[in-house]
């Protein structure tokens, strides 16, 4: 049984690693199209965003509506560093690492700043504060001068024009998963979950609520910032219009669809939603294009009501998929044991 759980802990690393290797082989043999490589980049960035938001929403239990703001900070500052360093250092790995470092750290600082109100505010108030933060960041970058961050035209960034950039993106996904999953499985992760379940009880048992809330917000912001840097590398131009409130909501939808507090779920839904977005964008054109948003919205409402409505509690317990499986397994095991005993 122990072996099974340890395998389960590493299943997402191995699956993502395997996918990356398969894609590399495909691209080396020339089967992988350039458009697919771009889709893979998008998927990797979405996974990073979803997993990092999941840390705050799913595990810390605070609603953050400003995740695109952190990404915006990362994209602009990382992109700027890349643009400056691209000339003397060349547009290579060294520049990328520097850009990632700057973008991640700056986003982390913003995460710290937004974590401070989080210590005093809760629920709705915090949600609106993070939303306000996202809008402030966007407005500031929108009104910068052309020489500094491009202002309304957007920041010109050096597109990392290599077909294997998605490999770097997937490596970053693995790093994100490594850090966040290990954090959650550690003592600190249990403390974070305890704060989500009952803050007062957590405080009473001696958990340093201040510290863990800040850790949650900072880490989440750092990875959103890193995703932003990668995003700026996949584009020629970063425009602050993209990082609006709706983008934050889109990431939130991914996290909720995947199941709150379930990292593998977030990954699967990030892949699914990004892929579906691409496919639906090809099928639905004109005014029908929003049909996809309507479907997402309806699914979001339905899932939240189904998972949380007090009136549906009995129904949920009766038809729980997980429980059905475990019951079957238990029944099977007991019957097998009975057979063994008979023999």
């Amino acid at each position: 049984m122990k072996k099974f759980t340890s395998f389960k802990n590493y299943i997402n690393y191995s699956v993502i690693g395997l996918i990356t290797v398969v894609c590399v082989i495909l691209s080396l043999s020339g089967v992988l199209k350039a458009s697919t490589a771009i889709l893979l980049e998008e998927i990797a960035i979405k996974i990073m965003l979803a997993v990092s938001l999941s840390l705050v929403v799913g595990f810390l239990g605070e609603l953050s509506l400003g995740h695109a703001g952190f990404m915006c900070v990362g994209a602009y500052l990382g992109g700027k560093v890349a643009a400056i360093l691209a000339a003397p250092l060349g547009n290579g790995i060294l520049t990328l690492v520097a850009a990632l470092a700057v973008g991640g750290i700056c986003a982390g600082v913003c995460g710290f700043l937004i974590g401070l109100p989080a210590l005093r505010l809760k629920g709705d108030y915090l949600a609106i504060t993070t939303l306000a933060f996202g809008e402030i960041v966007r407005t500031i970058f929108l009104n910068t001068s052309e020489e500094s961050f491009g202002g309304p035209i957007g920041l010109a960034t050096p597109r990392f024009n290599k077909e294997w950039f998605y490999v770097i993106c997937f490596v970053m996904v693995l790093i994100t998963l490594f850090v966040i999953q290990n954090l959650i499985r550690s003592k600190h992760g249990r403390a974070i979950k305890a704060i989500r379940d009952n803050e007062i009880a957590a405080r009473a048992t001696g958990i340093n609520v201040t510290r863990y809330k800040l850790i949650g917000f900072i880490l989440s912001a750092v990875f959103a910032g890193l995703a932003g840097v990668l995003y700026s590398y996949t584009k020629f131009n970063v425009s602050s219009q993209i990082f609006d409130y709706n983008y934050s909501i889109e990431i939130l939808v991914i996290v909720v669809l995947g199941g709150m507090g379930n990292i593998n779920g977030s990954i699967v839904s990030a892949v699914f939603v990004t892929f579906l977005n691409r496919e639906l964008a090809n099928i639905l054109t004109g005014n029908l294009a929003v049909l996809k948003d309507i479907i997402y919205a309806v699914i979001l409402i339905a899932i939240v009501i189904y998972r949380n409505a007090p009136a549906l509690k009995g129904f949920r317990e009766k038809y729980n998929i997980k429980q059905l499986f475990s019951k079957k397994k238990a029944a099977q095991e007991s019957s097998e044991e009975a057979v063994k005993e008979e023999n």
Binding site: V57, G61, L63, L65, G123, D124, A127, I249, L252, V253, V256, V290, D293, I294, Y296, A297, V298, L300, I301, V304, I305, R307, N308, A309, P310, A311, L312
Partner: peptide
């Protein structure tokens, strides 16, 4: 249906409704 559920769930539903109205 969510009366009595966690505030986070209600807030996310409200966001969903907002998203739905805009898309419609």
């Amino acid at each position: 249906p969510l009366r009595g559920a966690s505030p986070l769930a209600v807030l996310i539903t409200a966001i969903g409704v907002s998203y739905l109205l805009q898309s419609l």
